[in-house]
Amino acid sequence: NQASVVANQLIPINTALTLVMMRSEVVTPVGIPAKDIPRLVSMQVNRAVPLGTTLMPDMVKGYA
């Protein structure tokens, strides 16, 4: 199973992502692939993302 990107903490709306905010985990449904973590750094979330939430492409500005 492919690992997805999961929030390692509460990420407030419009926050630029950093490595410490994200972890990889095998979850259902599948979200953004963990291999894309380096690409996500500095991108902003367009909503508040609670701890443990799988990041989906529509949550990150400029990803999709």
Score class of each variant (00 low, 15 high):
S42D: 07
M21V: 05
G31K: 01
Q2I: 14
G31H: 01
T28M: 07
R23Y: 05
P33D: 15
V30P: 13
T54M: 04
V49M: 05
A64Q: 13
P57W: 06
Q2F: 14
I32L: 07
T28D: 15
N1I: 15
S42G: 13
P38T: 08
R39N: 06
G31E: 00
A48R: 09
L10I: 13
L19S: 14
Q9A: 11
Q44G: 05
A34G: 12
A64T: 14
S42R: 07
R39S: 12
V20S: 13
N1F: 07
L55E: 01
M22P: 00
M21G: 03
G52S: 14
A34L: 03
V45I: 09
L17T: 00
A7W: 01
I32D: 01
S42Y: 04
A7F: 02
L55C: 02
L51C: 14
K35W: 14
M43F: 09
P38L: 06
V26E: 15
T28F: 06
P50C: 13
S24R: 04
V26A: 14
M59G: 03
P57S: 14
Q2Y: 15
P38Q: 11
A16G: 11
L17M: 11
K35D: 15
S24K: 05
M21S: 06
M21K: 03
N1E: 15
L55M: 12
T53Y: 12
V45W: 00
P12M: 13
I11F: 01
L55Q: 01
V45K: 00
D58V: 07
V30H: 13
K61H: 10
A64Y: 04
T53K: 07
A34F: 07
T28I: 05
P33N: 13
M43W: 06
Q2T: 13
L19K: 07
Q9Y: 11
A48Y: 07
N46Q: 12
M22R: 00
P50N: 12
V30F: 11
V20E: 13
L10M: 12
Q9L: 10
E25I: 03
P29Q: 08
I13M: 11
V60L: 09
S24C: 13
N8E: 13
Y63H: 10
P38V: 07
L55N: 00
M21A: 09
A3E: 15
Q9H: 05
T28Q: 09
S4N: 00
M43R: 06
A3N: 13
L40F: 02
D58N: 09
L51I: 14
G52I: 02
V26M: 12
D58M: 11
P38G: 08
T28C: 12
L40K: 00
P29S: 07
S42E: 11
V27D: 02
L10V: 12
A3H: 15
M59E: 03
R39Y: 13
M21Q: 09
R39I: 11
N1S: 15
S42F: 15
P38R: 03
Q2M: 10
A64M: 08
L10T: 12
T18E: 06
A48K: 08
M21W: 02
P12Y: 09
L17A: 00
L17S: 00
T18M: 06
L19H: 12
R23A: 14
P50L: 05
Q9G: 05
G52D: 15
A48H: 10
L17N: 00
L51V: 13
G31W: 02
V26T: 11
V6G: 00
M56D: 06
L40A: 00
R47L: 12
P38M: 05
P33I: 09
V45T: 14
A64I: 14
P33W: 07
T28V: 06
N1R: 03
T53A: 14
V5G: 02
V26Y: 07
S24W: 05
L19I: 10
M59T: 07
L55I: 12
N46F: 10
M43K: 07
V30N: 13
Q9N: 05
N8D: 14
K35S: 15
R23V: 13
S24N: 09
Y63R: 03
P33H: 14
R39F: 06
M59P: 01
K35G: 14
I37Q: 12
R39D: 07
L19P: 12
D58A: 07
T28N: 13
G62F: 08
A34M: 12
E25Q: 07
A64L: 14
M59Y: 11
K35V: 14
E25H: 05
L17Y: 00
V5E: 00
V49A: 07
V27F: 02
Y63M: 05
V20W: 04
V30S: 12
G31V: 02
V45M: 07
R47F: 09
I11L: 13
V27S: 08
P57L: 05
S42H: 11
T53Q: 06
T18I: 05
G31F: 02
K35P: 15
V6A: 04
G62T: 07
V6Y: 02
A34P: 15
D36H: 06
A48D: 09
M43E: 08
L10S: 11
L40N: 00
G52F: 08
V6F: 02
R39C: 15
T28R: 03
N14Q: 08
A3Q: 10
R47Y: 12
I37N: 01
N8M: 07
P33R: 04
L55K: 00
L51W: 10
S24G: 10
A48I: 06
V41Y: 04
M43V: 04
L40R: 00
M56N: 08
R39G: 14
S24I: 10
V60P: 01
I32N: 00
M56Y: 08
L51N: 10
L19V: 12
P29M: 06
A34V: 12
T18D: 04
V5P: 01
I13W: 06
R39L: 15
T54R: 03
I37K: 05
P50R: 10
L55F: 12
L55W: 00
A64V: 15
K35N: 15
N46T: 14
V30K: 03
V49S: 02
T53H: 15
Q44C: 10
N8P: 02
R47T: 10
V41E: 10
D36N: 05
V5T: 12
L40S: 00
D36S: 05
V41C: 12
I32R: 00
S24E: 14
V60D: 02
M59V: 08
I13D: 13
S24P: 09
M43A: 07
P29L: 06
V26S: 11
P29G: 04
Y63V: 04
R39A: 11
K61Q: 15
V20K: 10
I11T: 02
P12G: 13
A34R: 03
D36P: 00
R39T: 11
V27N: 04
V41S: 03
T54A: 06
P50S: 12
G62E: 11
V6P: 01
V60Y: 00
M22V: 06
Y63C: 06
A7Q: 00
R47I: 14
V5R: 02
L55V: 10
